[in-house]
Write a protein that binds this DNA or RNA. Structure first.
Lengths: 127, 127
DNA sequence: CTGCATCCTCAGGGATACTG
DNA sequence: CAGTATCCCTGAGGATGCAG
């Protein structure tokens, strides 16, 4: 992986590859992948689970789920019953993505102390 | 790593840990970490390197560099010469972060075909 | 060259109401 | 319950100009 191995095409639009990366690392994408890595969730259930961390609107949740579904990372299982029941889970591809994201999140958690220490020093240095 | 292991504190603000994750996974944070993982760069040089992939304004570049520096991931070496020369490189902590990000980017690159295939099927299914 | 300050735009994203 | 549609607003981010 190197930056220069990326687009290099004179055009203006991003390479599709960057887009997937943005979907996966997006604010809600990260949380959805981590949540679904544990188990499948129904829509509102997922919203509550994520809400424990950071409030997410219905709009953003369904929007992000659609993006991830289109990328083949999330599987949407809509059962034709009344009231409606829709279960979301990860595909194999999604599980792989979730592993990467979880690794990143785990690293952040591990190194949190070092980061906060660095911040204190940085802030103190410019008082 | 599980979502529920995150904030859980009745408050409204994000846990500082989420913030670091957002810095690292941010649009420009990702590109900066990957670029600096290869070698150190001067400001404009870094801007051009990243620009090959996606145009970045001076403002966003310096802004993102500052947050990453504050988080202790990037080292800023300003040489007191005329004209000014400032070199940016990764700290040990930053190199660790870059490894995680590169792993994620590499995965995306590897699985790009599967994703595009999934997209085609998804789009085709709703014509 | 390396930025900081300013202005301005536009799209990400929240709140609300409504539907199947 | 699981969304879609609509309105609206904040803030990310670009463009420009200036300073050290």
């Amino acid at each position: 992986m190197s930056v220069s191995s990326w687009s290099r095409g004179g055009g203006e639009e991003m390479c599709p590859y960057r887009l997937v990366l943005e979907h996966v690392t997006s604010r809600w994408g990260v949380l959805i992948l981590i949540a679904l890595a544990e188990r499948s969730y129904r829509f509102s259930e997922l919203r509550r689970a994520i809400g424990e961390v950071s409030r997410v609107s219905e709009k953003m949740l369904s929007q992000t789920l659609q993006t991830l579904e289109r990328d083949g990372l999330v599987h949407r299982d809509a059962k034709p019953v009344i009231p409606p029941r829709v279960d979301y889970s990860l595909t194999d591809l999604g599980r792989e993505a979730a592993e990467q994201v979880k690794a990143l999140a785990a690293w952040t958690e591990r190194r949190m102390d070092d980061v906060q220490q660095a911040r204190r020093e940085y802030d103190e240095a410019r008082l």
